[in-house]
Amino acid sequence: MKKNILGILGLFIFIFIFTAYYSEPFLSAYNMQNLIKWSSLYAIMGIGVAFVIITGGIDLSIGSVIGLVASLMALAIKKGWDPNFAVVMLLGLSLGIGLIHGLLITKVKLQPFVVTLCGLLVYRGISRWMTDNQTMQYPGTDKLDSLFSGKVLMGSFGLPAPLFFLIVVAILAAIFLNRTIWGRYLFALGNNEDGARYSGIETDRLKIVAYVICSFLAGLSGLLFAYELDSVQPAQTGEFYELYAIAAAVLGGCSLRGGQGTILGVIIAAAVIRLLRNSINLLGISTHLEYAIIGMVILCGVAADEIIKRVMARRRTAQVTTARK
């Protein structure tokens, strides 16, 4: 199931070299730290949604889950809860949200798009209602602050905390997808759900697991974003992030038809998206063009990927026919 990630890697290297050539400070330690930090944050969300996309589903509620977790964290601190307890509870809440999504999709047989679109609205609404829509901060939680947004110094280079979260998440996700039977089942059901069921795979249970993983990683991202920004606006924090996450997953080689995807691809794709933003700022391109550029690059990336795949498939068919002759 290993998919070619050379295309996206090439794109990353191209933009990287291009920016480094035209912007001298691009390679500075400070900028690299920032790039790593933001890429890690986006990649964690992207990995989450990749699981769902591999099953052939979609999760549009990621941004709202991020907003909800960030808001409730601030609220919990304000109400004087033990912050560590709050973190555990909120991660638990994220798992619960994923479970509900999964159950609605597999047992009630609603479409993932509908379920998570409603989730998007509901969680955003709850965030705003619970917090009275007030901007809030995270005072008096220095330990969590350094856990979620601190830096580990390597000489003068500070590795941002989200990177370590990403490393752990990525390794676990890659092991799950490529080394465990459930990962294999996930690919199989994404490719052909009936075929997987006829082979004795409990497709419903696995789909639920995918949605649980996705929401859990969204919740974790919520905490990371919260402490990175030290501030939460219940109406805005995390808005549209699901689209960046989905973009990263798709650009990273996940097919929305299901059954395909690699963790490494998603990470590189998330980095490409952040790199583009960084590059737009450093090269002094108008901020108004940012969305247009990101959109075009993703489109080109996905199109190139599709073409490469088709050429390879044709070559393979040709091989088989000659082999048969």
Binding site: Y30, N31, N34, F225, Q236, E239, R277, N278, N281, T287
Partner: peptide
């Protein structure tokens, strides 16, 4: 040049970071 962020907090922060990177 003036950078805008459309009230998106992470953009506001990364705009500031990128400015520090770009303009020594």
């Amino acid at each position: 040049d003036t950078r805008t962020d459309n009230f998106v907090m992470d953009t506001a922060k990364s705009n500031a970071e990128d400015a520090i990177t770009k303009h020594k």
